[in-house]
Design a protein around this nucleic acid. Structure first.
Length: 575
RNA sequence: CGGGGUGUGGCGCAGUCGGUAGCGCGCGGCGUUUGGGACGCUGAGGUCGGAGGUUCGAGUCCUCUCACCCCGACCA
């Protein structure tokens, strides 16, 4: 590609309101342009990157038996009604009507469609297992998009779907995807961890996320410093200390003026936070009042609470609502409240004689004990894991890291096949639901994440596997000496003839402009010729990630570049 | 959806007390220059996000509205 004809020019300055390095650099390097909030065009350079990423994905999914296909972006609403998601999913699912006023939706994922196809195409156990996938546009009307391609509303995703006889078959395909995903993310040059995750709106029985570590990540992962445990903070657990063996002491009300926070209470009574019971009040989506009790040194994890209660979500309860159940904000106690679901964390079950509120202003109660003093409706792990907490496997301290979710694998089980009636007949002629799995990678998000992990103050430094071009070629010199330009023209032809992708900066620009653009766009190899190099019949070759360059005779440029590329790619090989 | 912010030429920005819309970069032409974002001359490009209002007069004041960005809520 000749830069003089490249569609999309580089920007010296990015729009002032962008924050993330990847967002800024992808705009400046002419990879993407915004159309609306969370909606982007991929310019030729950006599209080349995404296509390379998708090709790597394709190769690895094909290698585990995937069959590529293509499913529609627009779905009749009925199929989503069948799965129950038409009702269950909020406004991020865009609903509209066609000209005949039929309800339609824009695809945000394709479980329903695969399941519908499976019930038509799969009849016999002889046809399973099966793995299908496509790389296709998704629309999710996020409440808030952010950060360029990191979080968008319209995006392209590779989603694959496995179909199996039983749970054991699903296990195999799940593991296959796990390994394929590890190869994919290694090949594109990402530093990542795999963590256990919540299944969220997908439903199903298990889920793992592939998390690229980045200070700009939206998720927090907890990782054991020994390397034997990693989970998304949404589901992360930690080693709990053994239950206290103190004998229960009698309840004892104590005056605690102005101690409306746990910290104030602990300070006033001169006790550690872990000797207090904190009351947290929620209103569940179902309308139930959820009264949470957790030890004062811990925080509530709402994802865990959602699972424990079966509520879809929570809003903080108002002062009026709290008083209506007989509790007092700031001095809340589960003792004596009515019309509330009482949920206690395991920490409260296992810690005798905690100080709780007394449900009247200015007073707390010592020595509260669930079971004796009040009856919890639910006892569960609803505590948020934090950095420094002990690993649930080995007890070593956990670390917390920010991360970007680049891939996600789900065991759906029979959640969709049962609802939509996707069944097969076994050898005895008995009907069984198909076991399904669902596996996604956002290719655009991967491209932005690679930029987050591979850039410096000058621009992007693409891993060779996904760079828009292998080589940035440029000539330096004035208009009167045509030799550099002619030498570069010749190299351009030679390199292309050898199958190397070249971005040729053939513009009559000064050296600084060309060098800066080459650094900004970030192809892995920079090749330059000038009067100075031609004096010795040489070209200059520099890796984007190195500060030193090498000089090679013109005749050796192609094999040298080929060797360098092979080496760069080898370092990124998935194995 | 809550909180905050920004909308002025392609990009970055200035515009005071309400008085004929500017600067830098970029873009076209000519010339000089030519190894890390050159210089001179010259030129094109703006219904100041939109609507309504106040005023002799609105980029500037008021009301409404739209868009985008950031934080949160939410989210695979």
């Amino acid at each position: 590609m000749r830069m003089s004809h490249l569609f999309g020019r580089t920007l010296r300055e990015a729009p002032g309101d962008v924050e993330l390095p990847s967002h800024r650099l992808m705009l400046r390097a002419a990879l993407i342009r915004p159309l609306g909030a969370g909606i982007y065009s991929l310019l030729p350079l950006g599209w080349r990157v995404v296509r390379k990423i998708e090709q790597i994905i394709r190769e690895e999914i094909d290698a585990i038996g995937g069959q590529e296909m293509l499913m529609p972006v627009v779905h009749p609403a009925d199929i989503w009604r069948e799965s129950g998601r038409y009702q269950a999913v909020g406004p991020e699912l865009t609903r509209f009507q066609d000209r005949s006023e039929r309800d339609m939706v824009l695809a945000m994922t394709h479980e329903e469609i695969v399941t519908d196809l499976a019930r038509q195409e799969i009849n016999s156990y002889r046809q399973l297992p099966m793995l299908v996938y496509h790389i296709q546009t998704k629309w999710r009307d996020e409440p808030r998009s952010r950060g360029g391609l990191i979080r968008v509303r319209e995006f392209t995703m590779k989603d694959s779907y496995s179909l199996d006889l039983d749970d054991a078959g699903l296990d195999v395909q799940y593991r296959n995807h796990w390994q394929a995903y590890e190869r994919i993310f290694r090949r594109v040059g990402l530093d990542f961890v795999v963590v256990g995750a919540d299944t969220g709106m997908m439903g199903g029985t298990a889920s793992h996320e592939f998390m690229a570590l980045s200070p700009y990540g939206e998720d927090i992962v907890l990782i054991c410093s020994n390397g034997d445990y990693a989970d998304n903070r949404e589901v992360a657990t930690f080693a709990r200390e053994a239950p206290g063996d103190e004998a229960p002491l009698p309840l004892d009300e104590v005056e605690t003026p102005n101690a409306t926070t746990i910290q104030a209470l602990a300070d006033y009574l001169d006790i550690p936070l872990s000797r207090t019971a904190k009351a947290v009040f929620y209103k569940g989506d179902s309308g139930r009042f959820v009264f949470v009790v957790i030890r004062g040194d811990l925080e509530v994890n709402e994802t865990k609470l959602r699972k424990a209660t079966g509520e879809g979500g929570f809003t903080p309860a108002s002062v009026e609502e709290i008083r209506a159940i007989g509790a007092e904000p700031g001095y809340g106690s589960p003792i004596g409240v009515r019309d509330a679901v009482i949920v206690i964390d395991e920490s409260v079950r296992d810690s005798p004689n905690l100080v709780a509120g007394a449900n009247r202003v200015g007073w707390h109660t010592r020595n509260t004990n669930p079971g004796r003093d009040y009856a919890p409706d639910i006892v569960a792990d609803i505590a948020a894991a934090e950095a420094g907490f002990p690993c649930p496997k080995c007890g070593a301290p956990l670390t917390a890291e920010r991360a970007i979710e680049v891939g996600n694998i789900f065991k759906l089980g029979t959640r969709y096949s049962k609802m939509l009636g996707a069944e097969y007949l076994d050898a005895e002629g008995m009907s069984h639901p198909i076991f399904m799995g669902s596996y996604g990678i956002g290719s655009g998000r991967v491209s932005a994440t690679v930029v987050e992990q591979h850039h410096d103050e000058r621009g992007i430094a693409w891993p060779a596997s996904v760079a828009p071009f292998d080589v940035s070629l440029l000539w330096i010199g004035g208009s009167e000496d045509t030799a550099p330009r002619e030498a570069a023209d010749a190299l351009y032809d030679e390199l292309r003839a050898a199958g190397i992708d070249v971005l040729y900066d053939d513009r009559p620009e000064r050296a600084g402009v060309k060098f800066n653009d080459a650094d900004l766009i970030g192809n892995p190899i920079r090749l330059s010729v000038s009067a100075r190099t031609l004096e010795r019949g040489e070209a200059e070759i520099k890796l984007r990630t190195e500060s030193e360059s090498v000089f090679v005779p013109l005749a050796e440029v192609v094999p040298t570049v080929q060797g360098m590329l092979a080496q760069l790619l080898l370092a990124l090989s998935g194995d």
